[in-house]
Design a protein around this nucleic acid. Sequence first.
RNA 1: GCGCCCGUAGCUCAACUGGAUAGAGCAAUUGCCUUCUAAGCAAUAGGUUUCAGGUUCGAGUCCUGAUGGGCGUACCA
Length: 542
Amino acid sequence: MNEYLEEIIKASLAQFELKEQPEIKLEAPKDATHGDASTNIAMMLAKPLRYNPRAIAQQIVDGIIYNDRKISSIEIAGPGFINFRFAEDYLFDELASIIEAGTEFGKTTSSKGKNIQIEFVSANPTGPLTVGHGRNAVLGDTVARLMEWTGAKVDREYYFNDAGRQMRVLGQSVQARYLEQLGIETVFPEGGYEGEYIKDIATELIKDKGEQLVESDDWTPFKEKAEEEIFADIDRTLTRMNIHMDNHFNEHSLYENGDIDSVVSRLREKGLVYEADGATWFKTTEFGKEKDTVLIKSTGEPTYRLPDIAYHANKLDRGYDLCIDIFGADHIATYPDVLSGISALGYDPEKIDVIVYQFVTIVKDGQPFKMSTRKANFVTLDELMDEVGSDVTRFFFLMRSPNTHLEFDIAQAKEAGEKNPVFYLQYAHARIHSILRKAEEEYSFSGKAKLNLLQEEAETTLIKTLFKLPVAIQSAADAREPHRLINYLNDVASAFTSFYHDCRIMGMEEDLAQARIALAKTTAQVLNNGLTILGITAPERM
RNA sequence: GCGCCCGUAGCUCAACUGGAUAGAGCAAUUGCCUUCUAAGCAAUAGGUUUCAGGUUCGAGUCCUGAUGGGCGUACCA
């Protein structure tokens, strides 16, 4: 519809001899009495044309030639809005086309042909995923699904580093528990990982290897066992949340294939790298930073920025049109350096997109809860899903804008009742299926539904709401904000329940019942498609 | 000190990237179950969008300053 409106408005604008085509913005007015679609184009043109916006609006309207099967009226309102009202025929035509599209309804082609890579979770394997990781995981996966619905091919990638101090301490922690469980006196490493899962890994190791490792003064086998077990555990957790990675990328491979060295030498050729105080520096001041940045420490070890730059170069070398990173607010400082590095190497920084989400505050027993993986003071995602299931878990992470500090009240999430908005959507879907089951026994329809029997206000409102799924998906995908889709689905569920109360199906004469069932079925389809993108189930019974 | 994010109903948050009378859920009050799932519907109440200026036809949204909070600001990741 928007394309059609744009087209007819554009045709009318030809009368003005504009230097450049203005962008025609169409939106659904908040207040339905204003119409079904609205544009502010006349107000936008007021300045360049130096003329009264309402008068411009009048001229535009006079110049519009429209199909009255699609548009029933055009009005000018307020300071110069042009409001369009959809024709009845259009509603029914469109409803029929949604039914036709079925599980495909809502897909767009805006990213067609694009290869997109999205990197998320990327937790190093030092312990189970916590509720803190949950927002990253669910946000990343859902943005990936949204991009897929706009036509892109998306690869989900998990980036990790199994070298370094963290992992050494992990290995030593397992080693200590291993010896402890075999009754050998030992000292638990300072700053070691205190969680119960470390003991479980030690137990597994005893099962596998018995006492073979008692004499080992090397912590490597312990680290390796821990990594294997923890990754398997992380993978199980992700699978439970309906998340499947396409690729795991080990930072270490960047050292093995020479990418790290190559990045430094290429930057050095450009005169952006120099040595000072025994360290290797990147001239980030050339990119507007106050200080230069260390790439390689005087110990010879790179800082994390260097592999980060090499990793992003590697992604772009793989031919992706767009690489999306999901970062917590604490990692935000790293990415300007990565972009500087990437541009210096001759890549297009526009191809890197960073989604920053704010931290999750866990509220437990009415109090904010501070977590630490090392101190084993955390709520794992698995524990959370044991309590509330994966649907509620995903929904809670998605229901708010990534940009706001999310408060996750565990008590509230546990409550399966009214406080829990995910059920509102699922309940609407289950209700529809309940009706469909009953209708199947009662009626046997033949021929096509006569959709033009849908004349009640609740019916019209519902139909118009259903149309907006593609727009909602597009907007959520463009902004990388899944919560927009949730807000939309709430509108759908709400429009449906109003319809449900105002318009009965059972007991109605056959043609009307058939038309209403078609509408209910379409609603279920829209809810189902939306919930699929959110990675949440659409139950047929509750 | 400097940089980024945020401040909207009692609470948790929306507001389609500058549009028309700022909206939902929870909490409060009031109606509605012998007919398709009351995990619901309908309605009432609740606001100087933290404060002070500015930009323009028009600001919760943009700019400046103040203020409160979160996160950064390392030869930690």
